[in-house]
Design a protein around this nucleic acid. Sequence first.
DNA 1: GCTGGCACTCGCCACCCGGGAGTGCCAACA
DNA 2: TGTTGGCACTCCCGGGTGGCGAGTGCCAGC
Lengths: 338, 338
Amino acid sequence: MQDERRLAVLRAIVEDYVSTREPVGSKALVERHGLGVSPATVRNDMAALEEEGLITQPHTSAGRIPTDKGYRLFVDRLTTIKPMTAAEKRAIATILDGAVDLDDVVQRSVRLLAQLTHQVALVQYPTLSGSTVRHLELVSLAPTRVLVVLILSSGRVEQRLVEVGRELDDDGLAALRGRLVAAINGRIIADATAELGTLTAPPDDGGVQDAVVDVLVDAMSGHRASDRVAVGGTANLARFGDSFEVSVRPLLEALEEHVVLLKLLGEAQTGGLVTVRIGHEGPYQEFASTSVVSTGYGPGDEAVGNLGVVGPTRMDYPGTMAAVRAVARYVSRILDDA
Amino acid sequence: MQDERRLAVLRAIVEDYVSTREPVGSKALVERHGLGVSPATVRNDMAALEEEGLITQPHTSAGRIPTDKGYRLFVDRLTTIKPMTAAEKRAIATILDGAVDLDDVVQRSVRLLAQLTHQVALVQYPTLSGSTVRHLELVSLAPTRVLVVLILSSGRVEQRLVEVGRELDDDGLAALRGRLVAAINGRIIADATAELGTLTAPPDDGGVQDAVVDVLVDAMSGHRASDRVAVGGTANLARFGDSFEVSVRPLLEALEEHVVLLKLLGEAQTGGLVTVRIGHEGPYQEFASTSVVSTGYGPGDEAVGNLGVVGPTRMDYPGTMAAVRAVARYVSRILDDA
DNA sequence: GCTGGCACTCGCCACCCGGGAGTGCCAACA
DNA sequence: TGTTGGCACTCCCGGGTGGCGAGTGCCAGC
């Protein structure tokens, strides 16, 4: 009974602090929320909550603000993800259905997510791992220069420029292509890569095939594509307001370091689970005052990438989680169709 | 004689203000620069410069800062672009030579430019206009869905997904491809586009060819590629320091609007000319306190895109112009080779 | 036309002070 | 045992104040 009220107090503190950005006091709390007790009682509860490390006061005799631990409890036990409104759902569908290709889906998603959450949005480009090789093309751009174009079943197109050691005529190119296509066409990435490893070049090849195989393996490792992350809504960083140099600067820097962003997005979660990483829980100290809300997306139950948002720990978790989940669902649905 | 000294004073004011970010007074000026006159004389000169609208004082009895007009005079007449050091040249060459394809060149350039200038860097993706059609591939992804891959002589690969009205077997696809290849292969974009317009579909085609032609024309219009701009160095915005909400916010918003960025970069300048747009001279009021330093790049004398930086009007113009010019030259050289 | 001197103007900063919001504690009560 | 009202205390915040210093404009002299 008493415990329940304390949790209600914590919830009220989180909600008020998120919306007002100011430490919340006992009196304001009972006024704004309909808890039927006196400020004195709330003060006692607050003291208990502070004892447990769930809230803190920035300085003596000011209101309370939630700690990371407090947000954690709030997210885990005090909140249900509020569903999107019909209008929001329509907007999501409309925007994403207009996409012309896979990259466009990613770019639209990132914008959408930024717009819905008013935070910085991140969308990882899909990894290739599940796809099969649909097509391989070798195009001669110059006598000793070949453009390798690899088309995957996911609709992704990987291109690489290769400097082969010697001149190559159209027939030689066609023969090379024939050998490679035979080895990899229709196979899933992992198998195709293995198959390429067993391939030996004809005696008069002079290293050309090996050069092409190298870039093919590189392209199929998905290295570059899955290392990329689309970023949107950076203008929302302006709303951080205070503590600019300390918290926004490192974030801006990180936004150009895709490796860092990938680590922030973390492991892909399947099954519609939304992960919330609060403040110091993350891998980087610089982001102690930021939280990451993320989830995986992909066709069926297979996660081919992550998406999410980064914002201040003081954020609207229920709304953000709902938006992240909704966008991931729609993106997954599109990948299902494709 | 007197005029010359006044210009020297203006130059000194610009240089000091750029490095200290504080209004510069007469006394500090004579101390830091070796002009052989007294502060009182400098004050008289300052009064004259202010009369001409070249400098201004933020408030009565503070130092002077340059106006946009003052910067303009400085850039046009008082400065020579300082050449890059050998080390910087090496760094540029090393970084750009490591690029694996065209997109990679753009992405490396934007990083490099941001690093060299400590500003926000912009690099437009090359337009397609000069290239010829090297290769066309149609890949069936689903019974009624075709991936169109267009490879251009510049090495650029454009891909589009088309929903054709009806099912298409491999033979039909090959025939369609044959017709299209005959029409466009080897031609430059403009001719190929025109040729596609005259093409009529066979009677039993059912709109498939027209659908594919539509996306081909769209892809060749270069619409998407040349509308894209790579952005880097946004973390440098943190150094704006003051006036955050007023000047950084609109800039952050603009950085996601590629149309706005293209307008900022302006018309391509050929022949190694670097354009400087100072403060209010630009098309957007919101950027009254920012300047744009840009130039064109491309193989030979042909400009296929622009690149440049955006920063506060209070920026190091000689250094920035040098960096922009140097990067543009190296990128052009790479395009020459390709 | 340059220079030194001088009075004047303001922005900046440190300081002080009163108001107010919020707290902790305690005694009283159900 | 839990809740409540009262009360003294703490400390942030905002406005007002005064000294300091940098910088200016003007003027008389060289």
